[in-house]
Amino acid sequence: MIYKIRIILDAKEDIFRDIEIKAESTLEDFHNAITQAFGFLGEEMASFYTCDENWNQDEEIALFDMSEGASSVRLMNETFLEDILTRQTPKLIYVYDFLSMWTFYVELADIVENTEGHDYPNILFSFGELPESPPEKNFEADPNFDFDETFDRYDDLDFEENWN
C-alpha cells in the first residue's frame, strides 16, 4: 500500500509538501523523505510525536536514543509508518532540529495501491518556499487565564497545607 501524506510547516503562510511513500517504510525513511522534500541537509536531530485529533502531542519516536538509559525510547528505524499512521490515527507531529524547532503537522490524506514503475518516496506536490529561519513560536500565556481564580481554589487541592 502507498500512503499519500501532507506535511505542513507550522507557519502563518501556507508551506507544505504532499508525499507518497510505501506504508511499510520506517519512520526514518519518512524522516529522510521530509528533509529532502523541504531542502534540509538531514544532519540535525529530529522526532515524530503521536498526537490526538486536536494535535496534542503524545509519545515521542526519536531518530536516536538520547535518553541515557533512563527509559526506553521508540526509534524511527524500528518503527514502521503503517503501525503509527492509520485511518484511525491519521496525524503526527514532526520536529526537525531541536535548536531551531522546525515544526510540521503530518496528516494521512489517502491510502492507495502501489503503481508499477513508480519510485517511492515521491513528492506529489510542493507549495510555498521554506523561510530562511523557522517561524517564531508564541509561548505566551493565555491572556484570558485568571491566575487569581486558580489560587481561590487552593483549598480544593489534595494535599496538606503544612506538609513540611
Rank of each mutant, 00 (worst) to 15 (best):
I2F: 03
Y3K: 09
K4R: 12
K4V: 14
I5Q: 06
R6P: 02
I7T: 08
I8N: 08
D10I: 07
A11V: 03
K12E: 13
K12D: 13
K12Y: 11
K12A: 09
F16Y: 15
F16V: 05
E20M: 15
A23D: 13
E24V: 06
T26H: 09
L27D: 01
L27K: 06
E28A: 03
D29W: 02
F30V: 04
H31E: 07
N32F: 05
N32E: 05
I34R: 03
T35H: 05
T35L: 04
Q36P: 01
A37E: 11
F38E: 01
F38A: 03
F38G: 04
F40Q: 02
F40R: 01
L41D: 10
E44D: 15
M45G: 12
A46Q: 08
F48D: 03
F48G: 02
F48S: 02
Y49I: 04
C51Y: 06
C51W: 01
N54T: 06
N56H: 12
Q57R: 11
E60A: 15
I61E: 01
L63Y: 15
F64S: 11
F64C: 10
F64M: 13
D65V: 07
D65H: 08
S67T: 10
E68N: 15
G69W: 04
G69H: 04
A70Q: 15
A70V: 15
S71L: 12
N77G: 00
T79N: 02
L81W: 07
L81E: 05
D83G: 03
T89M: 07
T89I: 04
K91E: 08
L92W: 03
L92C: 01
I93T: 08
I93N: 07
I93C: 10
Y96F: 05
D97S: 12
F98A: 02
F98C: 05
S100P: 02
M101Y: 12
F104V: 02
F104G: 00
F104N: 01
Y105T: 07
Y105M: 00
V106C: 06
V106T: 09
V106A: 06
V106S: 04
E107P: 09
L108F: 06
I111L: 03
T115N: 05
T115M: 07
T115G: 04
E116M: 04
G117N: 08
D119R: 13
D119M: 02
Y120R: 06
N122P: 01
L124S: 03
F127E: 12
F127Q: 14
G128W: 06
E129L: 12
E132W: 06
S133T: 15
S133L: 14
P135G: 01
P135K: 04
P135I: 00
E136K: 13
K137N: 07
N138Y: 11
N138W: 11
N138S: 11
F139K: 00
E140A: 08
E140I: 00
A141N: 14
A141H: 12
A141D: 13
D142N: 15
P143N: 04
N144D: 15
F145D: 14
F147I: 08
D148A: 13
D148M: 11
D148N: 13
D148W: 03
D148H: 10
E149H: 12
E149Q: 13
T150R: 09
F151G: 00
D152I: 01
D152R: 13
R153W: 08
Y154S: 12
Y154A: 14
D158F: 12
D158G: 08
E160M: 08
E161M: 07
E161D: 13
N164Y: 14
